[in-house]
Structure formats: C-alpha cells, structure tokens
Amino acid sequence: MLDVSRKQVMAYRIAEHGLHRGAGDPLALAVFDLGLQDSMRDTALLGLAARSAGPVVPTTLAEDPRLTLVWSHRGAPHFHRRADLPELVASLVPLDEADALARILWQQKELAQTGLSAVDVLFTTARALRKVVTKTMSKGAASTAVTKLLPDSFSYACRGCQATHVYEQLMRVAALHGGVRLEADQSPATLAPLEDRGRVSTRADPAAASRVLERYLRLNGPAAQGDAAGFAGTAKSVLKQTWPADLAEVRVDGRRAFLPADRLAALENPPTPSLVRLLPPWDPFTQARDKSVLVPDKAYAKEVWKILGSPGALLVDGELLGTWRAKATGKRLALTISPFTPLQRAHRTAAEDEAALVATARGYDTHTVVWA
C-alpha cells in the first residue's frame, strides 16, 4: 500500500483542480465533471477565474450556451455542461429509501407524516414542479404554486417567510428531476423549464451514481468513503451499491483513503504548486470533505469555514494560509486579505495581482487591497 504525505495530497489536488492555469477551453476543466458550485454571489465565476488562463468577465458563465445552472449535488446550485445533464439526472435518482431520505435531509418523523416512501415524496414533488414551472418565474412564485399542489405534510411553517411552503431541500432535489433549471445571474432566484426536458424518470442508475463518486475521488482524492458520500449528499450505507471499481487504497499520513488507480503516478509525483490564488467561498477545492487535510490547524480552519458569512481562502504554494473578503463601494471593489502568518513580498504581490482578476470578473474597473 502506498504511503503519501499530506503535502503530496495538496499538490495533487491543486493540479487536478486546474489551479496551475493551463491553457485551453475552461469547460475542459475537471471541476466541471462535478459541476461548479454557485451558492454565493459570483462564487462560480471567481472559481473559474482562479483556474482560467484567459480573461473572465461577469458574463463568462451566464452567456455560455454550453452551460446551464441547476440544483444538483446536495441541492446546491451548480453550473454543469449541458451535454452532461442526462447522466447527471440519472446519477441523482435515489437507489433506495436511505438514499432518498438522505438527499431530502428528512428524518423518519417528517416522512411518517406523509404516509409515503421517501422516493415517492421526491418524485411527487418533481411532477408538481414540472406542472408549475412551464415558463420563467421567481422561486417564490414557484414555491407557492407547488405547495398548493402537494399534500400538507410536504410543507412547513417558515418563520423567515412567515408562510407555509414546501420544504426547501425537497424542492431543490426534486427540481432537476422535474426538468427545472435556474436562471443565471438572477436575484432573487428565478426558475425556468429545461429545454427539451424529457419525462420524469424514476429509474435509478447505479453506474451513473458510481461515476460521481469516482470523479470526486479523482478530483479530491485520496479520500475516504464518508468524504465521497458527503459530497454526493447520500447515506454512507448506499455506497455499498455504488462504490467505484479500480480504486487504489493508500494511506495519507496513516489515514486510509482511496484514489482511482490510474492516478497513483500523478499522486506520487505531483507538480510543485508555486502559485498564489484567491479562492472564493464554496470553491470546489475547499469543498473537499476532509477539512483536516486542507487545513490541519483547527483555529485556522474555523476562519476558512465560518458557519455564517464564509470568506474566500488564500492559497499560497500548496497551503491555505489566509482568508479574504470583498465589498463593493460604489464603482470600486475593496478587498481585504487576512493571512494567517506573514507572507513574503512576492506572495503579497501575487495576491494583489489575483485581486485584480477578481475585480475584473466581478465587473469593477477599480479596486483596492487592504492587508489585515
């Protein structure tokens, strides 16, 4: 069994994530194999800017006809290649009750109130969404209309909205099955029917689900089974049916983990990550589930993954060494970079260069950088 260090793992992942900025079509980046998450303002756009050799501007993702924005893994919004959608939808069909229950984030108590199986709850909601979303409409309007079509047990009293509506996670995981996508760059969230959407399919595809796990391990490996299950948003027990073949078992500083066997050579000799990047909140790199590998220091980890108001992360030569935030003030974008330890002048200069790319991607002609 191969033993590797945490440093090797970090270098391997940086390369797999395209953070060395190789030339070529950005859509060929491996991160699009799983989708580029867009949970906060411009996070997907800034994630692309951290990986793209060419210019990234506010319309780069939204106006690319090869991409579409949907609620996918864990019900989070992701940009996916349109060509990948059929397999993506198949991979998200629950394999069994445990899988469906985990995906909608319900407990047995909520499920018992419906008198249905978790799979039936999911696809009943998907069919209702399909009936409602026949044109572009706000998420709020869609939620209101869907709630009226569903049994009362599918809804809850929302304090924030001061209204009763369908469970948020249930609506999110059902949307793609119902042929519903998101409009990019719209706030509040806006839904629309997928072009050429087919019939609602309840047929599970273990092979498609397995490929999601394999791609996670390829991008964020070596990793444990629980890490892969956490990304997919499913129960660990489900992995017995979908755990990929042709995996190699390795040890990362003594911890058991897995990687596609054809990536062992790349793991043993990854390119040296001599680079500086400003990664946005929810970037695919920091979305890896084994946070102790990414940031071993618990105090630093709390700064990178805050419960509320997550900052971006400062990547320096293979380590996450700080955080950053951006605030718009009129026509200027103000960035504050907070390193955990003093940085070399060359690293600070490189970070300021990255700040300029962030400003361009956000559509600001001027910006300032403050070192905290």
Rank of each mutant, 00 (worst) to 15 (best):
M1G: 14
Q8G: 05
V9I: 10
A11E: 12
E16N: 09
H17K: 09
H20N: 10
A23N: 06
A28N: 09
F32M: 07
D38G: 07
L48C: 04
R51Y: 13
G54Q: 15
V57N: 01
V57L: 14
T59V: 09
P77A: 02
R82Y: 07
S91W: 11
I104R: 05
I104K: 03
W106R: 00
V119Q: 13
R127P: 06
R130P: 01
T136S: 14
M137P: 06
S143D: 08
S143M: 14
L149S: 06
F154Q: 11
R159P: 01
A163C: 00
H165N: 03
M171E: 09
Q186P: 01
Q186E: 12
S187L: 09
D196A: 15
G198V: 04
Y216F: 02
Y216V: 07
L217H: 04
A223Y: 00
D227P: 09
T234W: 06
T234H: 00
S237K: 14
A245H: 01
A245V: 05
A245D: 14
A248K: 14
E249V: 13
R251P: 00
V252Q: 08
D253I: 04
A265E: 15
A266Y: 02
P270T: 09
P270C: 10
L278T: 12
D290S: 13
K298F: 07
A313Q: 13
L314D: 05
L314R: 09
G318A: 10
R325H: 12
P339H: 04
L343C: 11
H347D: 14
D353G: 15
G363A: 07
